[in-house]
Each structure stands twice: as structure tokens, then as C-alpha cells.
């Protein structure tokens, strides 16, 4: 092995976050921006999972033939896995809402360019009236 697998995962996480930031900053296509955001979230999740990794560790399930001491020394750290599961669910739901909004805005503008839909000019309409009773 050229590089320790935990270290490699950390580098991958860093790369994912940097690529995501690049995409969010420089790409004009909103879908591509959102893919970049998913990269950032995945990078953060990968980082947390990697922290729970233990070289040669076992899954943290206590089987009858294990002694408590042996288990405490060899089991990997379970907390990060539980956290990541929650974090992935949150990420998926925000992603779904974002993509739904993109669909609605695409129908309205016929474009998914951030500079066109979410640029300064569309939103500087100071006129801010509401329709009906607003709901």
C-alpha cells in the first residue's frame, strides 16, 4: 500500500470539498452548482466516516464469544457512522428541495443559468407586491 487508507480518505474528502467550492463559485449552470454542493456535503460526510475508521478494527457488534475488554480495544468508533447517516438524510432532503425549485424556476425563465435567474437584475425589482392574501 502506497498510502494509508485513512489518510487517502482524508485527502479525498478535502478534494471533494475543494472541487465543490470551485463548482459553486465558478460554474454558472445551477444544476452543476448543486452537484458541487452535493460534493461539499459528501466531503464533510466522508471526513466524519473516516474519523471512525480503525485499522484492523471490527464492526461494533458485541457477540457472545467476545470478552468486554477485547471488544473495547478492537471495535471501531460507532458514533461517526450514526451521525453520518443522519447527515446524509438531511443532505438528501435539502437537495430535493433545491432541485424542485430549479424545476419551477426553469419553467418560469426557460433557463438554468445562475447569472440569468439568480442575478442581480431579476431580484432588484424593488416592487414587492403580493398576490391575493399572500398564501
Amino acid at each position: 500500500m502506497i498510502i494509508d487508507s485513512q489518510l487517502a480518505s482524508f485527502f479525498t474528502a478535502a478534494a471533494l470539498i475543494i472541487i465543490g467550492l470551485y463548482a459553486a463559485l465558478f460554474l454558472d449552470n445551477i444544476i452543476k452548482k448543486i452537484i458541487g454542493l452535493a460534493f461539499i456535503g459528501d466531503g464533510a460526510n466522508l471526513f466524519i466516516i473516516t474519523m471512525g475508521y480503525k485499522a484492523g478494527g471490527i464492526v461494533y457488534i458485541f457477540l457472545p464469544d467476545m470478552t468486554v475488554n477485547w471488544f473495547a480495544q478492537n471495535a471501531s468508533y460507532p458514533l461517526p457512522f450514526a451521525l453520518v447517516l443522519t447527515s446524509i438524510v438531511i443532505g438528501a432532503s435539502t437537495l430535493a428541495v433545491m432541485l424542485a425549485l430549479v424545476i419551477v424556476l426553469y419553467k418560469k425563465y426557460g433557463s438554468i443559468k445562475a447569472s440569468k435567474i439568480l442575478g442581480a437584475k431579476q431580484n432588484q425589482e424593488t416592487e414587492n407586491s403580493i398576490k391575493g392574501d399572500g398564501l
Binding site: I30, L37, A44, V104, I117, L118, N123, E125
Partner: peptide, 23 residues
Amino acid sequence: SKVKGNLEAALKYMIIGGIASPL
């Protein structure tokens, strides 16, 4: 809320949140 420009603002907030909250 049916306010003009609400969807654009919401998407912007989500995209910005999508960067800031993973950090």
C-alpha cells in the same frame, strides 16, 4: 408566501446554505 421573487430568494438561500452548513 406568494411574494414576488420568493422562489429565487429561496433557491439562493438554499444554495448558500448548501455551502455553509457542510462547513
